[in-house]
Amino acid sequence: MQINPKETLFGHPILKVREVVRQAMRCRLWGSSEKELHEKVAKALKQSLVSAQELAKQLVDDGYLLFEKKIFGEDDVQFELNETEKGRRFGVANAGKPISRQKATQLLNELIERAKAINHRKELAYYVESIRVFGSYLSDKEALGDLDIGVKLARKNNFTELEDNRIELARQSGRQFSNYSEVLDWPHREVMMLLKARKRGLSLHDIDEDKVFKVAETNLVFQYRKGKTTGKTFL
């Protein structure tokens, strides 16, 4: 699915609306009250609480998201926004210019080489356990929206020590974090950024967080196990 980044949806920039749906795909839109839930929508949308409430309703009414109220025991209530199949397709939609299959193959080969290099870096807190291709690359199309990649990272045995070191190094380098969650997420995000390498046309998704991998057809292209790496080279 391709979207125009200059368009709007429900009166908001379409990329911001897509980010709200992606937060739902990552199971991050929930709260013990509807207000707490909508505050998380507002953060993703970067708009007021009122605007977030209105957008959430529109996304539900139009079939992108499902609003659910879950009850655990007598007093424990959780409100959630979860994506539908329509929302999932929108959430992984590409907003960039189409790329050729040849370019996508080049991006894939370069990504695998970066994964191998990352796994040789002892100072990082995570290693790349596996990489899977999904989406239009598995079709016979020559023009692709982008190269959709699922990545699974794993913690190293001395994770706590490495985590502390990477966070401290980031702070010393001038990186700022807006909250404690961002601090804890940094060692994981750091490796994902190294994999991405700011490459246009490359779309990375966390296999452990993104529900699309429960239904999407995928092709394993890289596997790291017990010091051994299995990685293909594509032509």
Rank of each mutant, 00 (worst) to 15 (best):
I131V: 13
K141T: 00
G135V: 00
E123W: 11
K116H: 14
H120F: 14
E129N: 13
F134A: 09
V128G: 05
E142S: 08
Y137R: 02
R121Q: 14
E142R: 05
H120L: 15
I118A: 10
K141M: 00
L124D: 07
K122Y: 10
V133K: 11
F134M: 04
D146Y: 12
G145A: 06
L138P: 10
S139K: 00
K116N: 11
D140H: 01
Y126P: 09
R121G: 05
F134P: 07
G135L: 02
S139M: 02
A117D: 14
G135W: 00
F134Q: 06
L144E: 00
L153F: 09
Y126I: 06
A143L: 08
N119Y: 03
K122W: 05
L147W: 03
R132Q: 11
L144M: 03
K122T: 04
G135E: 01
K152C: 03
G150Q: 14
S136W: 01
K152A: 02
A143N: 07
V151H: 12
D148S: 12
S130A: 10
A115W: 15
I118F: 11
D146Q: 09
I118M: 06
Y127T: 03
S130Y: 06
V128M: 10
V151K: 08
V133Y: 07
A143F: 06
V151F: 12
N119K: 09
D140T: 00
Y127I: 05
A115Q: 13
D140M: 01
A125F: 07
H120V: 12
D146A: 14
G145W: 03
N119S: 06
R132A: 05
V128A: 05
G135K: 02
G145K: 01
F134G: 07
Y127L: 08
K122P: 04
G150K: 10
G145L: 02
A117C: 04
N119L: 04
E129D: 05
Y137G: 04
V133W: 08
Y126H: 15
I149N: 10
S139R: 02
N119R: 01
S136R: 02
D148W: 08
I149M: 09
K116V: 12
R121S: 11
L147H: 10
K141E: 00
V133S: 07
I131D: 08
S136F: 01
K152G: 01
R132I: 06
E123M: 12
V128I: 14
A115Y: 15
Y126G: 06
L147K: 05
L153W: 13
R132K: 15
L124H: 07
L124F: 09
E123K: 15
A117M: 14
K141P: 01
A143Q: 10
E129A: 13
H120D: 15
L153N: 10
R121C: 08
A117G: 05
I131Q: 08
S130H: 04
I118D: 13
K122N: 03
K116I: 13
K122Q: 11
I118K: 12
K122C: 02
A143C: 04
S139T: 15
Y127M: 07
I118V: 14
L153D: 13
R132F: 10
A115C: 15
D146W: 12
A115D: 11
L138S: 09
Y137D: 00
N119H: 11
